[in-house]
Amino acid sequence: MTAHAISVQGVSKIYPGGVHALDGVSIDVRPGEWVAIMGPSGSGKTTLLSILNGLDKPTSGRIQVLGTDTHGFGPDDWAVFRRENIGLVFQQFHLIPYLTAVENVMLAQYYHSMPVREQALAALERVQLAGRGHHLPSQLSGGEQQRVCIARALINDPKIVLADEPTGNLDEENEARVLELFRALHGEGKTLVVVTHDPEIGCAGERIISLSHGKVSKDSATAAGARLATVGGPPGSSGDPCATSAHA
């Protein structure tokens, strides 16, 4: 039985030149939990997410994902682990420019198992892009591209979704759509870790972990998290950070 979807213990990341991006960070994320990682620029939140998805390696510390100790994982081990368990959402979408929307989604299927166009089209329909499957990324708006990115992240039914500033390049309308999608995913029991500057996105989750200078400065439940805590126990320290910051 896995106690934590993600367990980070004493993780540090020191870049060449001695820059401490992360300094002894320890956090646990429960299965199905929606965690926002917030903090000012340079606080280490993107580095933390890159270490959680295996695209970057910590200088020290240990990480367990879904009960698997990733210590000693090489790039290919991580690639296989990601395609089986983790969906990634990027701020810049990162769609292959010469593939259509549906082909971009099928690409994730290709490396996971087998590309099935109907499933890819259904994933696009789920993100309200039915009928846009044959369009190239250049023919889609930023919000639409982000939804293709989310469809690609979800096509292999990952247990964990890691999102890096998913609404950073979106207008309000598209931000609301993405938020709605995240709520739906959370409702399905996906574990969500979202790096964001946006208090609205952060407060939509159950818990906010604040980073400052590479350290966890605050780990607190949101109102939604507090409600859940009355049932399943508190995920972090008490105090709703959204009570004052939601509309800051």
């Binding site: 790039p75 690639a79 296989v80 990601r82 990162h94 690409l107 994730a108 996971h112």
Partner: peptide, 9 residues
């Protein structure tokens, strides 16, 4: 990106 979505080297 290909590596991020699961392609090995």
């Amino acid at each position: 990106l290909l590596q991020a979505i699961g392609a090995r080297r």
